[in-house]
Simulated scan of single mutants.
Amino acid sequence: METKDLYRILGVSRGASQEEIRRAYRRLARKYHPDANPDDPSAEERFKEIQHAYEVLSDPERRRRYDQGPSAFFGGERVSGNGSGFGGFSNISDIFDTFGDVFGRGGRGQRPSSRGQDVTVSVNLGFREALSGVTTRVSAPVEEECSTCGGSGAAPGTFPRTCPECGGRGTSTQDQGFFAFSSTCRRCGGSGTVIDRPCPTCHGDGRVRNARQVTVRIPAGAKDGMKIRIPGRGSAGRNGGPRGDLYVVTRVAEHPVFERRGDDFVVELPVSFTEAALGARVDVPRPEGGTVRLKIPAGTQDGKQFRVRGAGAPHPRGGGRGDLIVRVRVVVPAKLTRREREILEAFADVHDDNVREDLFRRVGEAR
């Protein structure tokens, strides 16, 4: 038996209209939802009471039985011809179904709450934006509760009614000898209710699609394809269920010079023949702007790599930065002046090393 006044739980009078009951439920559900009170265990119990009270009082038939009191369940006429004597019910299972309906334990005509769907959107970022971080707005196509019908799917002034085919269970059962097979009710699609006059706005779905503008903070160092979760910004839940989450996927433009590898960047640095041979100090561009000074040792070969610590991308979750990897590319002059040619010929006369000697030695040693 009910030990608490369902009207008092919602804070409405016994003569309250369905619209007053709906408004009271939505206000209290937002206030006591567990997601809004993570540190208050009592909020969950209070939320369950509010949800149960709304499930009973929002259904005209269930509300009528509740207002009649216990005699509505065990009084009345007996069903003739079966000798069951269950106070107007054909069998004991009907009694328990009715109790489940009133007390919110999965009975007839009940529309269970469900979590809203997650929504995924992408955001395009420039190379520098992703490197430094940016706050931007994205348009999320979410499903919201229809404001015309309050999510019921029924036209204003009407309400969904218990499905006459399945009795509100949402399933139909077929007896096959010793076995019984259950399937989703074809009439109501498993919801347990049918809508005679669909809402003109949502056409009976109780939901409408809306483009919600959401502000999202992209952390510094964001990579291409990184997924950022924003809790509770997805589609609204059904029948008081919590909202889904919003996932924002970053799409970062490539840079014409810097190649990203994790949190590191790779850059190819052109150096002249003389710089590689004699050694030099050269400026190397940094991904976020500016330069860093790098020492090129004498005799540096083409393809030699140097690592500049901490000059890469910031770790998106904090804790330092990646490195800048500098790969040397020795540039050989395409044309020489007469004076340059004379100098190089003189250099060749005094520096007659056989640079291919080691190549032929290893070829000859191979079996």
Rank of each mutant, 00 (worst) to 15 (best):
S139K: 08
D59E: 11
G167R: 02
D352F: 13
G83W: 10
E20G: 08
A253K: 09
K335E: 12
D118I: 12
E44H: 05
I325T: 03
F73Q: 07
G303V: 05
T291C: 04
T300N: 08
S183W: 05
R261Y: 08
R197V: 00
T300R: 07
S58C: 12
G189P: 01
E77H: 07
C185K: 03
F127K: 05
G299M: 09
V282R: 14
T184P: 05
R341P: 01
S114Q: 13
E49V: 06
E254R: 15
P314V: 00
I218Y: 03
G109Y: 04
P287Q: 06
V266D: 07
G320Y: 05
F127L: 04
E259Y: 01
T274F: 10
N354M: 04
D5S: 13
A311P: 00
P333G: 06
V123W: 03
G322V: 00
E275H: 11
D245C: 07
R65A: 15
Y247E: 11
R105P: 00
A311Q: 10
V331Q: 13
S13C: 04
Y66C: 09
R329K: 14
D175R: 15
Y7R: 07
D97E: 14
T3R: 10
L125Y: 03
G69I: 02
G133M: 05
E145H: 04
R23Y: 04
G204S: 07
A334C: 00
V208L: 13
Q174L: 12
F47R: 12
I95S: 13
V350M: 04
C166L: 09
L10H: 12
G126A: 07
R111C: 05
Y54R: 09
G322E: 00
E340K: 08
G116R: 10
Y32S: 09
S152I: 01
Q176C: 06
A16R: 06
N37E: 05
T135K: 11
T173W: 07
F47L: 11
D302C: 06
R321G: 01
R197I: 01
V102C: 02
C146F: 10
G240F: 11
R362Q: 13
D245Y: 07
G153M: 08
D205E: 13
